[in-house]
């Protein structure tokens, strides 16, 4: 069950998105997310969401996989939608579920719910695309490069990036291990999903202690293995994969900026009814 989470995974491939400089992808994803929160109308949001959809098509990641990462957030999505429906009581009434009661579902509420859900989905899809198409090492390398100006302030940028690389590398290993430990303790009658709170806490202890012990053991062994491979913190390291800002990056940058600009422009310069309703948020 735990093994089926697809958020944050990398799917090796040869698509255009895979070939982009990870720095380009990282910065543009960041820009996209910021813009997503600034967009105020449906036209802009559709444009942005459509662009994320285009990204999925270009990346050739199976739609099923993308759907899985959205599905993981289904509770947040439903919660948001319900909250919006409850919150908006102004505007044209669409439906009064409880006759005689004040509460009503209004068009405003529906618009806001749809708007917010679409925004979350676009956010998840775009940020998933980043990790789907960029290997963890490339991603942390890109972060290291982008943050390198901070070295002036004696921030250990390289160490931070190395920690991230190792964390990303070990997440799947530890998830797998967690799965095994949970099953092993369940086999000894651990009650993880039922029973009294004290029993459940005891069972949690039986899972997290072995997990931590194992994580520390792995860390110690990994440190030794890295030493054997001549790793010294802060020394000059070369790279197998050199990041190059190519024409492809320039093209993608241009398209991306154009989409974001168009979406934001229509949000801040309302141009009549063509651009639809602007939800009150």
């Amino acid at each position: 069950m735990l093994k089926e989470i697809t958020i944050g995974q990398f799917f090796p491939g040869r698509s255009l998105l895979h070939k982009l400089d990870p720095r380009t992808k990282l910065v543009l994803t960041f820009v996209y997310i910021v813009a997503l929160f600034l967009v105020r109308n449906f036209f802009g949001l559709f444009l942005m969401a459509g662009f994320a959809g285009l990204g999925v098509l270009i990346s050739r990641i199976p739609l099923k996989t993308v759907w899985k990462s959205i599905r993981a957030l289904v509770f947040i999505v439903i919660f948001t939608a319900v909250l919006q429906l409850l919150y908006h009581s102004d505007g044209d009434v669409l439906w009064r579920p409880f006759p005689g009661k004040e509460f009503a579902v209004t068009w405003d509420g529906v618009y806001s719910a749809v708007f917010l859900v679409l925004r979350i989905v676009a956010l998840v899809v775009m940020s998933s695309l980043l990790t789907y198409t960029t290997s963890p090492t490339m991603l942390t390398d890109a972060i290291e490069r982008l943050l390198s100006p901070l070295k002036v302030f004696h921030v250990k940028v390289h160490s931070l990036a190395m920690m991230m690389t190792i964390a990303l590398r070990f997440i799947p290993t530890l998830i797998e291990e967690l799965d095994i430990i949970m099953n092993a303790q369940k086999a000894r009658g651990a009650k993880l999903d039922a029973g009294k709170l004290s029993e459940r806490l005891k069972s949690m202890v039986s899972i997290f202690i072995p997990l931590f012990v194992s994580a520390f053991r792995r860390a110690a062994e990994l440190a030794v293995a890295m030493e054997c491979r001549c790793y010294t913190d802060g020394a000059n390291r070369s790279r197998l994969k050199i990041m190059r800002f190519s024409r492809l990056d320039l093209l993608w940058l241009f398209v991306h900026v154009a989409v974001v600009f168009a979406a934001l422009f229509t949000s801040f310069y309302p141009m009549g009814s063509f651009f639809l309703f602007q939800p009150v948020i």
Partner: peptide
């Protein structure tokens, strides 16, 4: 299900990694 867990004792591979 719970009864089966006790009637059928399952010792996992490398069980020492599950000590707590």
């Amino acid at each position: 299900v719970y009864r089966a867990r006790f009637q059928v004792g399952l010792c996992f591979q490398y069980p020492e990694y599950q000590l707590f």
